[in-house]
Nucleic acid binder design. Structure first.
Lengths: 147, 147
DNA sequence: ATGGCTGCAAAAGTTTTGCACTTCT
DNA sequence: AGAAGTGCAAAACTTTTGCAGCCAT
């Protein structure tokens, strides 16, 4: 994992450079935070984490950087059951979510199962599909007990 | 369709009454707007439409009503590629979205194809799955041309 | 009649922007 | 050196809330 994220960082640097974007400590710090966290973070949480090592890093920079990363396809803006925007890295392959409406727990899963569907729909509507998201909502075992 | 939405309205009235909620012209107007629009509306668009017939209907009421409807399971808050919250009625069966990242166009589609997946995951994670959402993102034919 | 609902205005919260200063390249 | 990026503060937006009056029940 250490090796891998190092590699990811390197390729992001290449990507930034190739787009005429600069490599700044702020961007690298934010990238690392997003990559490290497996889960989903909102802008404020990312800001809080970033400040632990660089207290002057501003929330504006977090937003600007997230928008940049979004444009570059490095993060995906998620909107789950909760309120704010959430971001997660897209480096580690597509994965989907199982969301408990009771306690808010989010379980991630992968499935190649959607490939067939993608092809079908791409053909049917003349779409080039670049990303997919599958969210399943319901109640986990624990929350079902408490009812 | 006319008949059907009339029936829907009636059953919503029952639901409201059974929850000790009042049936007000504002609520009925908002319900109708949401049911009529096939697509997805954000609070502001709903407000604009509502004002066409009742100019005094306030945005607060729109929000309060949407939250009420959400609690009652009458609408679902969606979060697509765009910015704000979007709401759509849940009366007309589950359907999913094909979203163009270029122009924002949203095509809805239905598929029973997810059933298998639902069962698989329900078993695997001991979840009771009540709702699912599948969003596929990409570029439509037109937007692909312009690049 | 009376408690819930609404409209209005103000507050709270989130995201964006203008500008002077700093820092990558 | 020069342009892009940053921090700070203010603005723009979206959503929620307090309160006085109104209206379904």
């Amino acid at each position: 994992m250490g090796k891998q994220s190092e590699k990811a960082t390197t390729s992001v640097k290449r990507l930034l450079r190739s787009m005429g974007k600069r490599i700044t400590p702020q961007r690298m710090a934010l990238l690392r935070i997003i990559e490290e966290q497996e889960g989903h973070l909102d802008a404020d949480e990312i800001h809080r984490l970033a400040r632990e090592e660089n207290p002057r890093l501003s929330l504006s920079t977090v937003y600007r950087t997230l928008n940049l990363f979004k444009e570059l396809g490095l993060v995906e803006e998620l909107h789950l059951a909760e309120e704010h925007h959430h971001y997660e890295g897209v480096g580690s392959g597509e994965h989907h979510h199982l969301i408990c409406l009771g306690c808010g727990k989010v379980i991630e899963f992968e499935c190649s199962f959607t490939d067939e569907l993608r092809q079908e729909l791409a053909k049917q509507h003349d779409f080039e599909i670049t990303r997919s998201r599958v969210d399943l909502m319901g109640y986990c075992a624990e929350c079902r007990k408490g009812r």
